[in-house]
Nucleic acid binder design. Structure first.
Length: 434
DNA sequence: AACCCCTTCAACCGCATTCAC
DNA sequence: GGTGAATGCGGTTGAAGGGGT
């Protein structure tokens, strides 16, 4: 037995929307919103349409700020890049292009871009016969094309082009990690960087991660990879954007490096060109990244990281964007006192997923080296000695939902599982759209 | 002018996921 | 935790329009 229809098809109008229907729907939505129920909306608005049809009409055509046609070269590049890496996940691709809908991009790709890329599909019938192999070819071509197109030689190109690798099978991560490392090393001076992505919606609910050192947490890694992708894309999209956009650049001079031995401001010379996305203007987000390093690389302490939980570990440090002095001191104090849970000292905290993906360690090494390598901090990092790290969320405000571990070229945002699916979705979508 | 073929894109369909109870 | 409803998504369809013959 098939699925029950979402509406009474005999009594709903189908086909193209009339200007009158558009006006009714637009007027209703602008005045009252969806009311959280698309199915009931047409009846309330006085439309003889299926709720799904109303939703589609609004999202793809009527809602404000929709752009139709006239795709720019830059948009082409982004679409090609993403298609080459993640395939036909149109909603995600659309999220990188403000004003564009997934339907628009899908149509644009299928009718123009694909052919433009291949340059050999002039025959419609031939296009229809595209086999899976040919489709793969298109994707490979798209990736290659965008790699060439985004080398930072022109003023309009992107400074940190990213290529993506995807696996559909999480069990492949172990082998992929090794591959990613060698590739990343190989291209360490190349403008083309690599991020490991996976074939799961970045909006999907995350597995709950407990507080503490959970080594090799694949779920956390996967989640992080997704947000890394998204954030990197946002960085690319917004590079050179003016100050009116809702983005702040880098860890500011008010950021602090906190270790059990010290709390010290990051000097301007230590600032690095990452971009932290401030999802909610005016709200108080705390960005922090804790990093555990081998004890012998620190001059402050001498303990073995392998036996230490994340925040009682003395051989860790925290990058915390703009904490108040009391926050920083309280945190440090709690830390020094060996509390596993900084919340015990009056600080609330988010989930602390920890993981040890080798690939990202490379990135982190770079980050730490650039951040602290020439600093006068008591924390001294030797590039090759980082053994473990933790990305976490800290803060004393319920709005603090974001984790950012900033790297020279990337900014990672991880939404904590504790915020629930809805919160994660809202944050993610808000961040993508702005 | 009539016909055919091709392109475009709005709209639909069905499935998967998420939500609410 | 189970279940049905709602929503989101990607593939597909088909009407409309343009261009060629």
């Amino acid at each position: 037995m098939g699925r029950a229809p979402c509406c009474d098809k005999a009594n709903v109008k189908r086909g193209p929307w009339s200007p009158e229907e558009d006006a009714i729907l637009k007027g209703y939505l602008e005045k009252r919103g969806t009311g959280g129920n698309w199915i009931a909306l047409p009846h309330k608005a006085g439309l003889k349409r299926c709720g799904k049809s109303c939703r589609l009409r609004w999202l793809n055509y009527l809602r404000p700020d929709i752009k139709h046609g006239g795709f720019s070269e830059e948009e082409d590049t982004i679409i090609c890049s993403l298609y080459g890496s993640i395939g036909s996940r149109w909603s995600i691709i659309a999220a990188q292009l403000p004003g564009r809908t997934d339907n628009d991009i899908k149509n644009y790709w299928n009718t123009r871009l694909k052919k433009k890329l291949l340059g050999k599909c002039k025959d419609h019938q031939q296009t229809r016969r595209l086999s899976r192999e040919a489709e793969k070819e298109v994707r490979a071509f798209a990736s290659e094309a965008v790699s060439v197109a985004t080398t930072p030689t022109s003023s309009t190109s992107l400074a940190n082009p990213v290529s993506y690798h995807m696996t559909t099978d999480p069990s492949n991560y172990a082998s992929l990690d090794a591959g990613m490392v060698s590739q990343a090393l190989e291209h360490s001076s190349s403008p083309i960087r690599t991020i490991l992505a996976h074939d799961q919606s970045p909006l999907s609910p995350s597995t709950a991660h407990g507080f503490g050192n959970i080594h090799d947490d694949r779920e956390a890694f996967r989640e992080m990879s997704d947000y890394a992708c998204l954030t990197s894309l946002l960085m690319r999209l917004n590079e050179g954007s003016d100050s009116s956009t809702n983005i702040s650049c880098g860890i500011s001079s008010t950021s602090q490096v906190i270790s059990p031995a010290s709390t010290s401001n990051i000097s301007s010379s230590q600032m690095f060109p990452s971009i932290n996305l401030d999802f909610s203007q005016g709200s108080m987000y705390t960005e922090c990244c804790t990093v555990n390093v081998k004890s012998e690389t620190l001059d402050a302490v001498d303990t073995n990281i392998e036996s230490q939980p994340a925040f009682s570990s003395a051989n860790s440090m925290v990058f915390w964007d703009s904490p108040s002095s009391s926050e920083a001191n309280n945190f440090q104090s709690a830390w020094m006192n060996g509390l596993n849970n900084p919340g015990d000292a009056g600080l609330s905290y988010g989930l602390i997923p920890t993981f040890n993906p080798t690939f990202n360690q490379l990135e982190l090494n770079e980050f730490l080296y650039n951040c602290t390598g020439s600093s006068s901090n008591s924390v001294q990092i030797i590039k090759e000695e980082i053994s473990d790290y933790t990305y976490g969320l800290l803060g004393g405000n319920s709005d603090q939902k974001k984790i950012t571990a900033a790297c020279p070229n990337y900014s990672y945002n991880i939404l904590p599982a504790s915020e629930g699916v809805a919160g994660s979705q809202a944050m993610c979508q808000e961040g993508i759209i702005f």
